[in-house]
Design a protein around this nucleic acid. Structure first.
Length: 424
DNA sequence: TCCTATGATTAGAA
DNA sequence: TTCTAATCATAGGA
């Protein structure tokens, strides 16, 4: 059996089963019997089908003429409906299954990213907070560029959507027009529209990808921390240097000390760590160069210590005149200058502990005297300051005390701690 | 524009 | 995990 006759049989079969047709123009029901009227109808259908099947073999003019006749035929709506159903049951049902694709995860990810990036909240500031006076300017610049990208994206998207709508309308009109001559159901038109939309959404995805790339480039350009290097404030550098040179024998601040320094300098703990890391290595590499700086901070620390201790002594004498003199030459509790620094910070700052001062005030006075005597005064020449001389570095380039960095092995050494490092 | 200083990052070691 | 050492990339001054 060839295809044509099979089709004819199928059509006839569907019809004879009393299938309801589109547009309320159903075939008359068979009424349970098929007499001469039924035979006539069959013949009628057979004629139409024959005409349809042979129309492709005819010339265009002949076909046009026949098309009109077929369009006006009373059985046309019924045939239309049946043919549509056959189409549904064959190829189109396969396409229909593909329609239920879940939303593309990549597209969703891009959407989310664009949403997050283009949303109202400003981008996070760079990690370095110090010296970021022009952050707002940079952010506005960043935002301006981001807005520009978004504008381009939206313009393009609008263009695509417009084009998509135009094309969809065009296709719909075309299909509607064609549905007069061939079986195209509204459902099929709908599917076609869906296909067009999917095609356009893939174009949209490309657009989104490009936009994402542009945003990423912008981000890396504007927010890359390395590019955003800012010098710390002078005050912050001074605080860090004071700590460094006063802990020269063991310039490894504990976690607590780092936190304290970070707080004082308005920077992050990791920035403090970075700073000390850089400082240690650069100091070690070029001690001579840093000697002057070391002396400067030595003098500064000593003067601060002198003032603070003097104040503490006065305070101590006023409040507790019976404080025993715990410090005797040779056996005093000698803090290194770094601890003095932190003690002075404690005395002057927010972590003051009266009891500590009370207990150590005399030894601090002795310490100060000791240090002053040891260094031969504050105005020692270059290299003559044993307090900050590089002898703390051992032969293989490490700090003598650095074999046990405080942050690793003795994290309890915090601000204000006292130990007997006499190397200073 | 060049040079130096400096904050940040990275790989590898301990 | 922290540190060192090398390196990058930028700031800022001459």
């Amino acid at each position: 059996m060839d295809d044509q006759s099979r089709m004819l049989q199928t059509l006839a079969g569907v019809n004879l089963a009393g299938h309801s047709v589109q547009g309320g123009m159903a075939l008359p029901p068979p009424h349970g019997h098929e007499g001469a009227d039924g035979d006539g109808r069959k013949q009628d259908i057979g004629d139409i089908l024959h005409q349809i099947m042979t129309i492709t073999d005819q010339s265009l003019d002949e076909a046009q003429a026949k098309k009109h006749a077929l369009n006006c035929h009373r059985m046309k709506p019924a045939l239309f409906s049946v043919l549509c159903e056959i189409k549904e049951k064959t190829g189109l049902s396969i396409r229909g299954a593909q329609e239920e694709d879940p939303p593309d995860p990549q597209l969703m990810r891009l959407d989310n990213m664009l949403l997050a990036e283009g949303g109202p909240p400003p981008p996070p500031p760079p990690p370095a907070s110090a010296g970021s006076s022009d952050n707002s300017i940079e952010h506005s610049d960043y935002r301006a560029k981001l807005t520009q990208i978004r504008q381009i994206y939206h313009t393009e998207l609008e263009k695509y959507e417009q084009a998509c709508n135009e094309f969809t309308t065009h296709v719909m009109n075309l299909l509607r027009e064609q549905s007069r001559t061939r079986p195209i159901s509204p459902k099929e038109i709908e599917r076609m529209v869906g296909i067009i939309h999917r095609k356009f959404s893939s174009i949209q995805m490309q657009l989104k990808q490009s936009t994402c790339e542009a945003v990423m480039i912008l981000r890396s350009r504007f927010l890359d921390a390395r590019r955003k290097r800012r010098n710390f404030s002078k005050q912050a550098t001074e605080i860090l240097n004071e700590y460094f040179y006063s802990h020269l024998s063991n310039p490894y601040p504990s976690e607590e000390a780092k936190e304290e320094l970070a707080k004082k300098c308005s920077i992050t703990v990791s920035q403090v760590s970075n700073w000390f890391g850089n400082k240690r290595i650069r100091y070690k590499k070029n001690i001579g160069k840093f000697q002057e700086e070391a002396n400067l901070y030595a003098a500064k620390t000593a003067v601060t210590a002198a003032h603070a201790v003097a104040a503490a002594v006065q305070n101590n004498q006023t409040n507790s005149p019976t404080t025993p003199n715990s410090g005797s030459s040779g056996s005093f509790n000698l803090p290194n200058s770094g601890d003095m620094f932190m003690n002075m910070q404690s005395l002057n700052g927010d972590s003051y502990q009266g009891s500590q001062v009370g207990a150590n005030v005399q030894s601090q006075v002795d310490t100060l005297r000791h240090v002053i005597n040891q260094t031969g005064g504050y105005s020692d020449g270059l290299g003559g300051n044993s307090l900050y001389s590089p002898h703390n570095l051992n032969a293989n380039g490490g700090w003598q005390d650095a074999t046990t960095p405080s942050s690793v092995t003795s994290p309890t050494e915090g601000p204000g701690s006292v130990h007997s490092d006499t190397s200073n």
